[in-house]
Amino acid sequence: MSLLEVQSLSKTFGGVAAVAEVSFELEAGHVHSVIGPNGAGKTTLFNLIAGAVRPSGGKVRLDGADITGLAPHVLAERGIGRSFQTPQIFAAMSVAENVMVGRHLRLDRRLLPSLLGMPAVDRANRAARERAQLLLDQVGLGQEADRPAGGLAYGAMKRLEIARALAGDPRLLLLDEPAAGLNPTETAEITALIQAIAAAGVTVVLVEHDMRLVMAVSDHIIVLDSGRKLADGTAAAIRADPAVIAAYLGQAQ
């Protein structure tokens, strides 16, 4: 059964359709990719699914439940995590604290114990810190845990965002260009990381320009062009699709 079901999803900005009547289904536990030329509406699609932008029309269902237009923090609670195209890290906090924020929903958030500094809050902090360390080790930032996050390199910020998203135990993880600005070694690490995340049962959706990465990890690819879905299918099917070759791959090669 599909985890996420997107039905005729549309978004117009001042009369211009950024996403138009896009429909697809995402099978649980698989790695999916959304590809397409710049301005195809990939990031807007992410923003619509993760609640950063309200759709103009259409439906989004998670596990059969309608989640269209819900606020981002509600969607986080339902199990949707994401990273951003331009890293949105909390620069003034330490790297570990960034990840601990990602754990927010699983922590003791009662006001009174927080104000009084009760042991329960300390315990929650300690547990979150340990969890953060594990996740940072997983994305290769274990050594940087106590550094200010604002001082990280661009690629490290992208990995920090993945760790932060994972800290919320998401069922669906949306990654917006995780390999942008990375060198080949780092890209290889990200590829392995994505495969490990999927192997742990998390459904992953990528927006990515690096075709080698996309073809290597994706079980299923959705092609967007000018806000519309051009095609979707397996990597092999997409590679063979004449419409896709004409509109996108052909152009790139």
């Binding site: 909390f90 620069a91 003034a92 932060r164 919320g168």
Partner: peptide
């Protein structure tokens, strides 16, 4: 502190 730095990232984190 998170929403101070980035409201959308804080909201996405829950």
């Amino acid at each position: 502190a998170a929403l101070n730095a980035s409201e959308i990232a804080a909201a996405t984190a829950g």
